[in-house]
Write a protein that binds this DNA or RNA. Structure first.
Lengths: 327, 327
DNA sequence: TCAAGCTGATAATGCGAATTACCACAGGGA
DNA sequence: TCCCTGTGGTAATTCGCATTATCAGCTTGA
């Protein structure tokens, strides 16, 4: 329409003033005018094929993002991710199709995975499949895991939560208040974030401190064991268990924190009226934000970023000096 | 690697048994084995270029999706969208990059819009830009608007809320209780969903019923006007205004619903402890679900679907017979 | 007058798949 | 022997863009 070759148009569109190819101002203007008038927009697929770059960031989750069961967890991360992606001029591709068959778990690589449509990918989830990680690394596909990950055939790029020092600091504080018998309630394994919390606890509370895994509905029994062992402060891995434990305690007339201090090692549910637990909060939004930031860095300059962000202390109302000290 | 041509591989991958090209079972098996061993996955960009189809559904919103200000609104829709997309084996592309410049509004078509990477698109928002709509229609790009839209240079495919009958039914019910003087609080314009609610109200309440637009902070003044006009039941366009009105009423010692019935024409905030308004609820999840359903239909068979889903009545506690009747 | 240098553009190629047109070979009937 | 029809593939082209190599025309200096 402008009476020029396709090359010329491409040059004008991409503002290539640098290379061997020169375009006269008149020609450039003519081309731009036609583009403006027709509202021409380059086909993104063809563009991606040629440029090998898209400005699309993939977001992979092992479960659906929006159901309310997981939304509380994912939402703050996505808030940060969207925020940063918007600034970077990137679109977000959610891999909702990743299930091979219905009922099965999502997988990053399946027969017609569209991961490679994205320039890079953010991995989101409490746990991540090791094989998926290994393959991402092997293929050199740029990605950032949200949450620290152990090596999977090589170091994994991540931005996560620095649990150990946060848990240690909390334990030290509790000990300083006079608590002697401490306990950790939760699996303490099954995912890096759990082992990290457990490690922080062990570091500060010593190898002989009580560890109670949670079995379904067993919060009453946990209280039994706690009092049998003379525990005055529990560190709860999962906020949900903190809530359950507090309710169980209340049910049997125990006072929190006077009879038992409860420390929660993660962001508590924000339901109004729920207990204001002492512990710390995970800065999910910041982590999501940083993940995209690091990913775009990797895309431009490469590298193997591994970052841990600090937890934010939460004062709450579930920590007090133990009774014997107070009396 | 299997000693066959690229064509053969393509045929095997896409299971093309139908066409002119025939592949012997042995060859097919050999190719499949190599694919399995190497874990080959076709490049999605190249694939899309050739096939002109992607199994990617675009989701366009005029504001960011995840910030808490808009999350309450978007979230239920997205829940349904994701659910259906997952079943359909589609990925979701969120156009977070759509802002031309920072501070500006998002636009569907900007210089390097990636909309066309998606097979089709779901439009989400209280209002939608008319020019964007017109261009989508003109280009024949498949899309579904969530929320009814007036024609924009042609009929717009949508799935929305059937406000008029829901509002009418509510008005009729209120009148049947004995209320005579009714009022509508809200703009009643600026978006199809508002005009639809207003229309339903006018249909049932008559053209002379009071209409009060909301100005910032003017809920007290609205109460004044209501009592001056002897209104005993208000229909509030936006749930937020319902809350504000109820608070203002309580502040001046008015009893809801005894002194004033409040009917809310949309899904109220679900904050615990907030007033349980009488009115109806928008089935957001179902609408999102249906939007994707219809979009995939359009992609396969074309068509111009226009659907309105009914509202779900909510009993609540803010409707009662007017005082004079009760006394 | 002629090669060198510059300017402004175009032809050709590549990206990685899908698709179409074409072909070599074998078996069979006349 | 020759043609005809399946059979099982392969070469060539296309999708729409970015990029590289090439080229035509015009100066300019010697």
């Amino acid at each position: 329409m402008a009476g020029v070759s396709q090359t010329t148009v491409s040059m004008v569109l991409n503002n290539r003033t640098d290379t061997e190819v020169r375009i006269s101002p008149e020609t450039r203007e003519r081309v731009l005018r036609v583009i403006r008038e027709t509202g021409y927009i380059a086909d993104p697929a063809a563009r991606r094929l040629a440029e090998r770059r898209n400005r699309i960031i993939g977001v992979f989750t092992y479960e659906a993002v929006f159901p309310s069961a997981s939304a509380d967890f994912y939402h703050p991360f996505l808030l940060g991710i969207e925020e940063r992606a918007e600034d970077a001029g990137c679109d977000l591709l959610l891999f909702t199709s990743a299930k091979a068959a219905s009922g099965e778990r999502r997988r990053i690589f399946n027969a017609d995975s569209r991961v490679r449509l994205a320039d890079g990918c953010v991995l989101l989830g409490r746990t991540v499949d090791r094989d998926d990680l290994a393959r991402l690394l092997a293929e050199g596909f740029p990605f950032i895991s949200i949450g620290r990950r152990d090596d999977a055939g090589g170091p994994v790029p991540y931005v996560g939560v620095d649990y150990p020092p946060a848990v240690r600091a909390l334990v030290e504080r509790v000990k300083a208040l006079g608590h002697v018998r401490l306990a950790y309630v939760g699996a303490g394994e099954g995912g890096e974030s759990r082992t990290d919390r457990m490690r922080g606890f062990r570091d500060a509370a010593g190898p002989r401190a009580l560890h109670l895994p949670v079995e379904a509905g067993g919060h009453g029994r946990i209280l039994d064991e706690l009092s049998a062992a003379g525990v005055t402060a529990v560190f709860v891995e999962e906020p949900a268990d903190g809530t359950a434990l507090a309710e169980a305690a209340q049910a049997r007339g125990l006072s929190i924190p006077d009879d038992l201090s409860i420390l929660v090692l993660g962001t508590p549910d924000r339901r109004p009226g729920s207990t204001g637990f002492t512990g710390f909060r995970i800065q999910r939004r910041e982590i999501g934000w940083r993940a995209v930031e690091l990913l775009t860095d990797v895309l431009e300059r490469g590298g193997m970023p591994q970052e841990l962000l600090p937890c934010e202390p939460v004062e709450g109302t579930t920590l007090a000096a133990p009774r014997n000290r107070k009396a």
